[in-house]
């Protein structure tokens, strides 16, 4: 039986939690608000919060200055493509680890994770050279492959965590029923793991979307995603807050909305099964 909580305490909790939540969210809110101001209002002293003349001119200006839709498209293709590619490679690997574990399974998992700790700068120049050699510099496919490799350990581990929840007897039943390994994975395992695969997909799309080392260093004009789009606003000369805010809002809006819709699944997946 849950104890009844004094309404006063509940009110205090609510007030406190909402204040903290608002404080954490405030930088994003402020960015969104500023994106609708004129440049003059954006640097007004004292700052104005709501009572300004709302305008869409910053969004128009950003659209004119750079081809937003191309950056957006590149982001979608690179983030989505690398994730789907990674999942296709990770599903069989996670199957092996979850259902035919050996003494080395844990070591392999931890080794995979440790490859993520390799400092990217340490290998930037070699990768750069390889990219030139194979003509992959500033191509979407090149970036897709690199981001896939970066996120592969996380994808394998998340899928492994989800697969382990599926009872092995069900896969054995499929084997008894005459399913080949391929049919077992396609007809039984994958449909049963759909929720897990979906949250793995979402999280890795977000990670790939926000990745800002390789995307900045391996692209120029053609394949540059939104990280590069926004980085072009970092030069100190001619900085305009309202336009910067509009560009920022445009860069984060798609993933912010996606993230909000899927926050529950994301958290469960990210704990690697260590927190239930």
């Amino acid at each position: 039986m849950a104890r009844s909580i004094a309404p006063r305490r509940k009110a205090i909790n609510t007030l406190l939690a909402w204040s903290v939540g608002f404080l954490i969210f405030f930088p994003i809110l402020w960015t969104i608000l500023t994106s609708f101001k004129t440049e003059a209002a954006a640097i007004a002293n004292p700052p104005v919060f709501i009572g300004f003349d709302w305008t869409l001119e910053n969004y128009q200006a950003v659209m004119e200055r750079s081809n937003y839709s191309r950056f957006l498209w590149n982001s979608i293709v690179i983030a989505g493509g690398s994730t789907v590619l990674g999942i296709l490679i990770a599903i069989p690997a996670a199957w092996s680890m979850a259902f035919v574990p050996s003494k080395r399974t844990k070591d392999i998992l931890l080794w995979m994770l440790s490859t993520k700790m390799l400092p990217a700068v340490g290998v930037l120049y070699p990768i750069y050279l390889l990219f030139i050699k194979f003509g992959m510099l500033d191509t979407k496919i090149g970036l897709m492959i690199v981001l896939m490799l970066i996120n592969l350990p996380i994808i394998v581990w998340m899928l492994y965590t989800y697969f382990k929840e599926i009872p092995g007897e069900i896969l054995e039943a499929a084997r008894m029923d005459g399913a080949t390994l391929r049919e077992e994975v396609i007809y039984i395992l994958t449909p049963m793991a759909i929720p897990g695969i979906a949250s793995t997909l979402l999280l890795n799309v977000i990670l790939a979307w926000n990745e800002a080392f390789w995307t900045l260093n391996l692209t120029a004009a053609k394949a540059a995603p939104l990280t590069a789009f926004i980085a072009s606003y970092s030069s100190p000369e001619g900085l305009f807050y309202a336009k910067l805010s509009a560009a920022s809002t445009m860069a984060i809006a798609p993933i912010l909305i996606l993230g909000w819709f899927s926050q529950k699944q994301l958290v469960s997946g990210l704990t690697f099964g260590a927190v239930k």
Binding site: G21, L216, L226, I230, Y233, L244, S245, A251, I252, W260
Partner: peptide, 29 residues
Amino acid sequence: MWGQGMVRILVIAPFFVMPTVSALVWKNM
């Protein structure tokens, strides 16, 4: 509390913001 789901949404938001954007916003604004 009231509106726990909404507070969670507010709190998780920064995680979805690209590092380049958050750095720019913090630096300038």
